[in-house]
């Protein structure tokens, strides 16, 4: 079943088309990578999917519903959660609290229940804390619960950001360069982790520069350059695609 269908999406900043007429689709359970040189429009594409930018043209249909131009705080309720290229955790909140904020869209305690500490309040807090700790355990952060996010090591911060997004139980997970800045061991572990998510049925859209990682885990790959889709297909097709090689290495390569 088609989970995501993007039709002729364009994002123009003044005269510059950061993303130009891109069509794109994802099936449930797929891992798809979005690659391309810096400035190709990958993150802009993410920002449109998550409602941060409103597309100049085109439509985004998710889970059978047109979500073009929906606000970011509502997108996550539709089932799309993301991480950021330049890690955006809540630095002065604890690791556990970061994940609990990730659950915001899936929980309900409001002013009344918080003020009067009702039974419902404690039930939800307990349930969420339990789930958050379970999630943190999957990325080896369970013992860091009460640590401030800013005190984590770089790789740990990347993992925490993924877990924070997962806490929203998304149908589609967008990862923006999750391996950036990681050493080979960490990247290897991350790859295993992402595979594990797929085995549990997750659908993942990935922006990544680490080609080894991309080639190993992607079901399909889309290549962007200067805002235009220049190729799409299976890993091996992409590796030998002349346009892609030129985009990365320059003409005449």
């Amino acid at each position: 079943m088609k989970l995501l269908e993007v039709n002729n999406l364009t994002m123009a900043f003044g005269g510059l088309k950061a993303v130009n007429n891109i069509s794109f689709h994802m099936e449930e359970g797929e891992i798809i990578s979005l690659i391309g040189p810096n400035g190709a429009g990958k993150t802009t594409f993410f920002n449109m999917l998550t409602g941060i930018y409103i597309p100049t043209e085109g439509s985004i249909v998710f889970n059978g519903k047109n979500i073009t131009g929906t606000a970011p705080e509502k997108i996550i309720k539709e089932g799309i959660a993301r991480t950021f290229q330049n890690i955006r955790l809540f630095p002065h909140m604890t690791v556990l609290e970061n994940v609990l904020v990730g659950m915001h869209s899936r929980s309900h305690n409001g002013l009344f229940h918080s003020l009067f500490r009702t039974k419902k309040f404690y039930q939800e807090e307990k349930r969420n804390a339990y789930k958050a700790k379970e999630l943190l355990a999957t990325v080896n952060l369970a013992d860091k619960c009460n640590e401030y996010a800013k005190n984590l090591a770089y790789g740990q911060q990347r993992r925490l950001e993924i877990v924070r997004a997962l806490a929203a139980q998304p149908k589609l997970l967008l990862l923006d360069e999750p391996a950036a800045g990681m050493n080979p061991q960490e990247t290897e572990a991350l790859m295993k982790y992402i595979r594990g998510l797929k085995d549990k049925g997750a659908t993942i859209l990935l922006i990544e520069h680490d080609m080894k990682l991309v080639m190993k885990i992607s079901d399909r790959i889309y290549v962007l350059d200067h805002g235009v889709k220049i190729a799409e297909g299976l890993s091996k097709d992409i590796q030998n695609n002349q346009d892609v090689i030129e985009a990365y290495l320059g003409k005449g390569a």
Partner: peptide, 15 residues
Amino acid sequence: IAIREDDLAAQSMGV
């Protein structure tokens, strides 16, 4: 607190 720390990230988490 999430809004104070990073309003865009908070918004992306559904706040």
